[in-house]
Simulated assay, not measured.
Amino acid sequence: MASDNRHSLRIGSGLSAWLPILFYTVAALCLMAIDARFSISSEIRSRTSVLASPVWWLASRPQALWQGGVAALSTNDSLQKRIDVLEKEKLKTDLALQQMLAVQSENAQLRKLLMGRQRLAPTARVVELLNINPDPSQKRFVISKGARENVRVGQVLIDANGLVGQVAEVYPSSAVVIGITDADHAVPVMVARSGFRSVLFGQGSDNSLSLANLTPSDDVKAGDILLTSGIGGRFPSGIPVGQVKAFRQDPALTFISAQVQPFARPRYGRHLLLLDVLSSVSSGTAPIAQTTAPDQATGSKP
């Protein structure tokens, strides 16, 4: 009798275990039939997606922020590299543009000739400005190339605006440049308008050069552009140097000096152009020294 009770309990337990499954199966079939007839599920999904969208947005934020940060860093790095490349290309382009001013000044003198000598622009290398001498009386700069890159004493440097100076000392991986505004430096120049030639002296000031020992008959006027003349073979001809701003009369009223503002601004850039031409003057000679002090009394040229 007890055995029969236990057997009936097992059968009842098995049926009760299958009843939920049967119920859910029937319910699922009914819902599928209703959805196929009335399309209820699409409406339910639409409403639940609106409620769930903030959760999806929050879940996607960490990945989006990470990707945005990586993209921003990559973009900044690529832009900086592009800026450096464009800076160097601009310097090289400016070298060609500077040659055009010399062509214009010589055109008046050569227009009667049937054939003129072809002007060849010197090749150049971009160098980085490493250091500037803090002594206000000495205009010296250190560049990033030296004897290992075949840099030699006497090579000329320019920036995007004009003549900067020339190499004075060479070391294995760097070189010292003496600027045209140094008190111990001078440059043979010519007036682009008239062709008048003279020597331009440094005064130890970043913004001033002196065209000394002028006479009233010399064809130099305020506003004239000065170019390297090429005399002496130290500097290539036609490089812009500065612009005449004013005149000063010496106390004896014998000579006049012109105050010239240099075009080059090496303190405002990171790169310079080193011209791959060497003057015919011996590379071991020192830069031209200033032998005549500029006059101090101010005045106007008669």
Rank of each mutant, 00 (worst) to 15 (best):
R119M: 03
S137T: 08
A124Y: 04
A71T: 03
H185A: 14
V26C: 02
V176Y: 06
V281H: 04
D218A: 13
A252Q: 05
L15Q: 09
L157N: 01
D219S: 09
N76C: 10
R117D: 12
L79K: 14
A186P: 03
R111A: 09
V170A: 07
D218T: 06
L97D: 06
K139A: 14
R234F: 12
D35G: 05
A33G: 02
Q261A: 05
G232M: 12
M115G: 04
G116I: 09
L95E: 02
P251D: 01
L253R: 15
L101K: 00
I231A: 01
E169R: 02
V191A: 03
G195Y: 08
M32L: 14
D159P: 01
T48G: 00
D94N: 08
F38E: 11
Q99C: 07
L58V: 12
L226T: 03
N107K: 08
S78W: 07
L29A: 00
S46H: 15
V127A: 00
S74K: 12
I256T: 03
K81T: 13
E128G: 11
Y171A: 05
R270N: 15
I288T: 15
H7P: 00
A168N: 14
R248M: 00
L31A: 14
S78M: 12
Y171D: 01
S174I: 05
E43P: 00
P20G: 04
G154H: 06
L274C: 07
I132Y: 01
Y171E: 03
A124F: 03
S74A: 14
A212H: 08
S42I: 12
N161L: 14
R61F: 11
S205L: 04
N213Q: 13
L101C: 00
V151D: 03
S174P: 02
R152L: 15
W57T: 06
V103I: 10
A160L: 09
T298R: 06
P240C: 04
S105M: 07
H185R: 07
F38C: 07
H7C: 05
D4W: 11
T181V: 02
C30A: 05
S53T: 10
A297G: 05
R82A: 13
K92Q: 15
L79F: 10
E128F: 03
A212E: 09
R10F: 14
H185N: 15
S217L: 11
V170Y: 06
S174D: 01
S208D: 02
V177D: 12
S210M: 06
A64W: 12
D4Q: 14
K92M: 13
T228P: 15
A52W: 06
L227I: 13
L31I: 13
L9I: 10
L86D: 10
D184S: 13
G202I: 12
R6Y: 03
A183G: 03
K301Q: 14
G116Q: 13
R193H: 01
P20E: 02
L227Q: 12
T93S: 15
F23C: 14
V177F: 07
P262C: 08
V156W: 11
T75C: 03
I178E: 00
S144G: 14
R267S: 08
T292I: 08
L157F: 07
S8H: 15
L91P: 06
T285D: 12
L51C: 01
G233F: 13
A72T: 14
L58K: 08
Q166V: 04
L86G: 06
L253G: 09
R6Q: 08
I158S: 03
V85Y: 10
T181S: 02
S53Q: 09
P266V: 04
A36D: 08
V164S: 00
